[in-house]
Structures are given as C-alpha cells and as structure tokens.
Write a protein that binds this DNA or RNA. Structure first.
Lengths: 343, 343
DNA sequence: TTGAAAGCGCTAACAG
DNA sequence: CTGTTAGCGCTTTCAA
C-alpha cells in the first residue's frame, strides 16, 4: 500500500526540483539550511530510500559479491559464507550465493548467469567436476572480462588471481608429526582421489612427517576414498577398505583423515573392531566441524578457519575492486590443531 | 578489457536504431528477417547480455529473493537454502542470503537493507532473539509495504502470510509412540526453552503420545536446555543435568531430543555411564543432519526435509509474486522417521 | 519494417 | 543557493 517514494515525488510535493532534493538528502552545502531541513524531514517521514537499482545503474556497480561454492550443506563452506557475509556487509556489499553441486556445468552456468553487470566480483571454490575436467576457461574468461575473482580453498595454480588457501601440507605434516611424537608408528592416511589438489597436499605433508622422523611409511596405508558413486556408496566402500586394513595390520596405531566424514567412518570401524580411541589408536582429522565436535569421543581436528578464510577472501576482493591494478596476492592460513584427546 | 557491449553500441555499429536492435534480439516479428539475422549474429559474436540492472529498473522488479535465516552454519538451514536456490533458479530468480545470527537487531537490519527495491520478496525463519522479544513489526511492516514474506520453520501465528512449517507435534508424537511401542516407558525429552514455539509443539506431541498410551509422563523427565549463555555453556550444563537425571532414574529407557546436538550430548553421557544404545536406552532426535548420520551408533532421526521446505517456500513466494491477491497458504510438511537402529 | 521519444530513479555538470 | 539537462541501458508506444 505505502508504495516506495521517489525523489520525483518529494520534489513535486515540496515544489522544488529533483536535483535539489537529491543534493539536500546528501547534505550538500550547496543547499540552504531551510530547504535542507524541510526536505530531510519530509523524506524521513515518508521513509525515503534511494532505489539501489537506479543508483547502481548510474554508478555502473551494484556492490554485489557472488560466491560460488561446491556445496552449501557443508559446515566448512557455511563458515566461509559467514565470513564473507560479515566482511561484505561491513563494507556495504551484498552477497549472492550459488552452489555448483560439485558439477562443472553448473559452475559454468552460475558464473555466466551472474557475470552480467549485477556482480562486482566473485569468490569461488571450484567444484570437483571442474578439477576433474581441468577446464578453467570460464574462470579465466571472467577475469579477462574485467570481473575480479578470488579463489579459495580449492584453488588453481594455472590461474593468476587473488587466492586464499590453507596450508594443507603443513597442517598434515603437523598432525602426522603429533601422532609420531606420541609414539605412533603405523599411521593410516585416509585421503581423496588424486585430482583434488588439497588431498594431494595433505598426502605430501603426511609423507614429509614420516621422512623427517625417519619412518618408512607404507604405501598401502594411504587409503584413497573414491568419488565416483554416491556419497553413501563411497563411504561404505571406504568402510570396507578400512576394516580390511585394520584387520590385516593389527599394529596400526594412528589414523589421520582429510575430512570429517572419513574420520566418522573410521570411528565406526574402530568401534566395530573394538579398538579404543585414543588408547589403541590415535585419530585426527581435517576440518573442525560439527561431526568431530559431537562424536564420541570427540575427534581432534585441524581447523581450517572457514570464517577467517571467508573474511580474507572478501577483503582481497574488495581491495581489488578499489584498486584493480594491485598485484595478485595469495593469503595462506595455517591450520590449528584442536586437541580433543583423541590422540 | 573486453568491456560489456550495449544496445547502443550495437545500434551504432550496425547503423540501425536502438529500438530495432532491442526488438530484433527479442525476435520480434516487427523486424525484417534480414535485419534480425544480422543483428542477432552480431550480438552473439560480441556476447551481448542485457544489463539486468537496467532491465530491472525498467520493469521495477529485480527477480531477487531474499532469504534470512538465523544461522548459516547449520545443516538444516543449509538444506533449506539449497531448496530455495534450486526452485528460484528454475524460475529465473536469484537468491540473496543473509544471516541474523539469532539476533533481533540483525534481523531488522537485514530486512531493512534488503527491502529496497532490490528484493521482490522474502523467505524468513525468525531468529530466537525475535521470538524472545515478541516484536514482529519489521515483518508486518514489510508485508504492508507490499513486499511478500514467506515464513518457514519458525513461524509466527500473529502474522498473516504464506508459511511452510513442519508438523512438529505429530513428529514428536510419532517418535515418542515408536519408543512406547518398543516397550519404553520412561522417556526423557530434551527440548528448548518455552519461547521457541517449535520446542513447545514437540513437547505437546511427546505428552500426547504418553496420554494416548495411558502412561503418566513425569514432568522432571522433560529437560529444557537453556539458551542464555554460549553454546558450549548451554550444552555442558545440559550434559550435567542429563547425567544427574540418568543416575537418579536408573530405569530410564528412552531419550528423544529436539535437535541433533542435544542428541549428541545424550550419546556422550550415555557412553560415560556405560549405558548401551539401543540395548538399554532408545535414542531418537529431530533433524536428519550430519551428526545423527555419522555418530556411533548413528541416531534415528525425524527428518524435517529441509530441501523440500526450501522448495515449497520458494514456490509459495513465486506464486504470490505472480498473483498478489491469492489467499495465504500454509504448507505443512510431515516429519519422516529415519530408522538407524538406535531405537 | 524501422525509428524517435519518453520514461524507469538517480546523479552530476553546468547554468542561472 | 536552486534548477535544467543529459545520461546510465533498456523497453515500449506511437509515428513514420
């Protein structure tokens, strides 16, 4: 009912020109105190709000940040969004979120549907599909078109842009070292398939820790969880593999998982085999989410600081928007070990 | 570099008028085949995309849906977003998400910052702060301003608008009945404080199930988890209460929790007291999220079908946008019990 | 079949 | 100090 009021209407009511109203509402000193007071009061009374569409059209910027993540229903990404949202709104930006559902095609579609003049810039974590496909044209095209992109978490080496990443290798190294220092010698690593760089990095860290401690790691203790089927299938096949490994090698005394669900599966198998955590086996995982916090026992986790990551990504983007010529920057976030006595 | 091309530029290049270009790109039959072909080819080559800002300004609608949720880092809400996003994008709408962080003030601020002409309508789950405050003006104001609102999950009786809610009472009734049918007689209910209507509904269902089975429920078996402190504090005080209850009443044989974290706390306490699930105690909780799926043992859960909820909410909103005069509608979603053998 | 012109709501340079 | 005007990119009516 109480339709939005415009400058034009105010001008007409008060019998002044539109630009006078515009200036008055901006508290411009060009306008006389009297008039200003009158106009401001009137505008306030009628709850005048400039039409952001018109403003954006005029300035050719909508102050909107597009975030594209592989999955929304994921604690880590939700944390990142949280961080982006906070920093963005502190700086007057609005955030639009879309999910690629880990699919290359959807990622491309999302980018293209947002890259119209609506969006000022992107914050993206690429989908597994894209990593598999190794086709990054949609991203480099966007950058070339003049729309800045910040890549986070799952980044792409070949693309030059701002990035925020976790020091996955160091995290895995420290986690593994921690286990080794506790006297653990036969440590299983549960990781992803090779095309996901993060999993790779973490595997490297695992290996480095072993090398440094002069322990020969066994290749068959590195278990790669498949990604080809449904989540349920992948996890249940992981469960079988893990059970086999644990039965075959009764002297296994440590497990490090690259994400929470893998760790939950490990916990399940350990329970089934009646192996105690941490008495018999130390368990540790990446990602400090709701699973590791609420499992019994809680699992010690390497936090990736999702919210901080989101904040940093938003900051990088906003800085670039202010100054498109600045050098590309890569922020690296260190993992923090949250010890919950599962080690 | 490759700056976006406009109608004007195309018109100039091809030496026709802007409106001809506009029409040609719309495949209007007003325009001759020849010209149309030429223009369309040119536009395609230069990847012409209409500036959505200008289109929106013209049509006075941006096709944007604003979603305001209490918390992003929450499996259920993430699922809802997922659903909204899907239905929205199927219908050409974009989704903007903001989080109120359970705070009244932030909810008000979010609504007001979005209710400019940018947003066509809202999908909201009100914050705990708002429920506590019992101040719903920001929402009724929005509706009166002509911006439609769909309330979901945590709805408000006093406000007339479209709603999507879960049949919480029936869900709790069925969950409790299930336990009773399994021979459980002393069932603890872990719920929220009273001002959250959902918790209340669930408590009612719990009571009804008892009444129907002619079992006297004990008031002191209804444990209300406080909401005043930090989450950690609230949960650890819940832990203590629960432990006391279980020690005092050694014949307790069932627990029903209104959310996953409460159930996780219960699992922890049960483990500590060496009480087996489901042998000694049946456990069941609302919300089919990642905790209940991945805990050991997995917890039987009453799914609230978050994604479906999101889809329905988006549908209601889009329908109303098409036809603002239609009657208000409340969609009720039934909970589904996902049995994971914790009963 | 094509084009001129007005207008969506706002800003800003320029004139008065 | 205030107003006129042009223009952001697009749609649409009306005229040619």
């Amino acid at each position: 009912m109480n339709q939005k009021i415009t400058l034009k209407q105010i001008a007409k009511e008060l019998d002044v020109s539109i630009s006078t109203v515009s200036k008055a509402l901006k508290d411009s000193k060009e306008i006389g105190e009297e008039t200003k007071k009158k106009i401001q009061a009137f505008a306030k009374y009628y709850k005048y709000r400039p039409n952001p569409l018109a403003v954006s059209l005029k300035n050719n910027t909508a102050k909107i940040i597009g975030v594209i993540i592989p999955e929304i229903v994921h604690h880590f990404f939700a944390e990142v969004i949280n961080g982006v949202e906070k920093t963005a709104s502190e700086n007057g930006y609005t955030v639009i979120i879309t999910s690629s559902n880990e699919q290359f095609e959807k990622e491309v579609a999302n980018i293209s549907s947002l890259s119209d003049s609506l969006i000022d810039g992107f914050i993206i974590s690429v989908s597994k599909g894209t990593l598999k496909e190794k086709n990054y044209e949609h991203i480099s095209d966007t950058i070339e078109l003049g729309i800045p992109v910040v890549l986070f978490d799952r980044t792409i080496d070949d693309i030059e842009c701002d990035k925020v990443m976790v020091n996955d290798r160091l995290g895995a190294y420290e986690g593994t070292s921690k286990l080794i220092n506790k006297g653990r010698r036969k440590i299983i690593l549960i990781t992803t398939e090779d095309y996901i760089s993060i999993g790779n990095e973490r595997t490297q860290g695992y290996i480095e820790a072993h090398d440094e401690a002069n322990i020969n790691y066994q290749q068959d203790l590195i278990i790669k969880c498949q990604e080809k089927g449904s989540r349920e299938k992948n996890l249940s096949s992981l469960e079988k593999n893990l059970e086999k490994s644990l039965t075959l090698n009764s002297d296994i005394d440590g497990i490090i998982a690259v994400n929470e669900s893998y760790a939950a599966v490990a916990l399940k198998v350990l329970g089934k085999l009646n192996i105690k955590v941490p008495e018999n086996v130390s368990l540790i995982c990446f990602s400090d989410g709701v699973i590791s916090q609420f499992s019994t026992p809680p699992i010690s986790a390497l936090s990736q600081h999702g919210e901080l990551m989101g904040r940093k990504a938003a900051n990088l983007l906003i800085e670039r928007l202010k100054n498109p010529e600045r050098d590309f920057q890569t922020d690296v976030i260190e993992c923090t070990l949250i010890d919950r006595n599962s080690i």
